[in-house]
Simulated assay, not measured.
Amino acid sequence: MGEGSGYKEYVAGMLAGVSIVVVGHPFDTVKLQKHNTEGNGMKYKSSLHCTSRILQTEGVKGLYRGATSSFLGMAFESSLAFGIYSQMKQFLQGGLNSEKPRPQAIVPSAAFAGAIISFILCPSELIKCRMQVQGTDSSLTSIRYSSPVDCALKTVQTEGLTGMFRGGGATLLRESIGNAVFFSTYEYVRYHMHQPMGHISSNLSHFIDVGVGIMSGGLGGIMCWCVVLPLDVAKTITQTSMDRDSTRNPFQILQAIYKRSGFKGCYTGLGPTILRAFPANAAAIVTWEMAVKLLGIKRE
């Protein structure tokens, strides 16, 4: 990144976050709805069957249940993630542009950005998960929420302010590790894909950049979720459980899941998550890089 870009990196990151929700939220809804209704004795033949059921009963709106808090949370999260990562990476590189990715700058920058955004993301995801779980086919909880604000108020009333940060430890670990994996994969794939294309006509550069953005962002998303999905499973269980006395330690939760369902249980929802990860993160990187160009931020 070039010097003096300042707030522009955060604006570009915010736009990337919006694109993630537009593309990825329906996948989240299907994954959570399918998992929780099956836990209550109902069976969907497939994720496609679950999607069609939601569309039949609630329409397209049903796929975006809980999306309001997602748009707000992801916009802030992505803005901080990309902004903090970009500026900290530049600082660790001594303000110098580096031709090759430098893991000693990439990893700590990404992990630090992930740690910061986890404090914003945790309450947002708690609201999103609880709104999604109370779908028309789920009887997981007797508490009904009329809106995200109602969900937040009832959570605070019943569990106190700290209830909004239920699952915070798992979120912190997931975001720190996940961001380090995502940005490392993105930087290396982007670098190695651009290398052999250095002499291609500038008329094709826009299409090349979009293609590289799709692949680097998509693969970054897949690698990230392959590493941190068990932490996300533990986080979701923690946030949607109405039992105040249940453990919030993600490793104890995963240990219990492993004893009950084996390694497969720790990767519940892997298929839909991977299906979501590629297009959602590809959209984020393409949007991010287009915004970087439009805002005039210099890149190495």
Rank of each mutant, 00 (worst) to 15 (best):
I237W: 03
Q239C: 02
S261A: 13
P103G: 10
G198D: 13
W225D: 05
R166C: 03
V181C: 10
D209W: 06
L173S: 08
L72K: 04
C266T: 08
K293V: 14
G178C: 01
E289G: 10
G83R: 00
G62V: 03
G163A: 12
L229D: 01
Y258F: 15
P279I: 01
R174L: 15
N203A: 11
L15K: 02
C122E: 06
A277P: 01
L140F: 11
S261Y: 13
E9P: 05
R174F: 14
A105H: 07
F82T: 01
L32Q: 08
I297C: 10
I143G: 05
K43F: 15
I116T: 12
K298Q: 15
S241Q: 07
Q33N: 12
P196E: 09
C266R: 04
E58V: 09
V227N: 01
L32I: 13
N203K: 13
G95K: 02
G178Q: 00
N36P: 03
G135K: 03
F263N: 08
A105D: 10
M215I: 13
V227R: 02
V228Y: 02
F82M: 06
L72C: 13
V149T: 11
H206M: 13
N36M: 13
V212C: 10
G13V: 03
F183S: 00
Y191M: 04
P101V: 09
S79R: 03
L204F: 11
F76P: 07
E125K: 00
N249A: 08
S138W: 07
K235V: 01
P123N: 05
D28I: 15
I106D: 02
G6P: 08
L270S: 13
S124L: 05
G135V: 08
S70H: 06
G211N: 08
S47Y: 15
I143A: 11
G265H: 13
L219G: 00
Y44T: 03
Q33V: 14
E125M: 07
F112T: 05
T287S: 14
G271N: 12
G163D: 09
T57P: 04
G95V: 03
N36S: 12
Y191I: 03
F263D: 05
E187N: 07
A110Q: 04
K128L: 12
P230G: 08
A152Y: 06
V286H: 04
S79T: 05
M42R: 15
H35C: 09
L254V: 10
F27R: 00
T185I: 03
V107R: 10
A110S: 10
E38H: 10
K259F: 12
G198F: 12
K154C: 09
K264Q: 15
V30P: 01
H192K: 10
L32A: 06
Y258E: 15
M164K: 02
L172F: 06
A280Q: 00
D137W: 11
G220E: 00
I285L: 14
G17C: 02
H194L: 15
P101N: 11
Y64I: 07
R130D: 04
Y267S: 07
V189S: 02
Y188W: 14
P108A: 13
Y186R: 03
F112E: 00
W288L: 11
K128G: 08
A180P: 03
K34R: 13
I214P: 01
D232T: 14
S118P: 04
S5W: 08
T236P: 09
T273D: 02
Q239L: 01
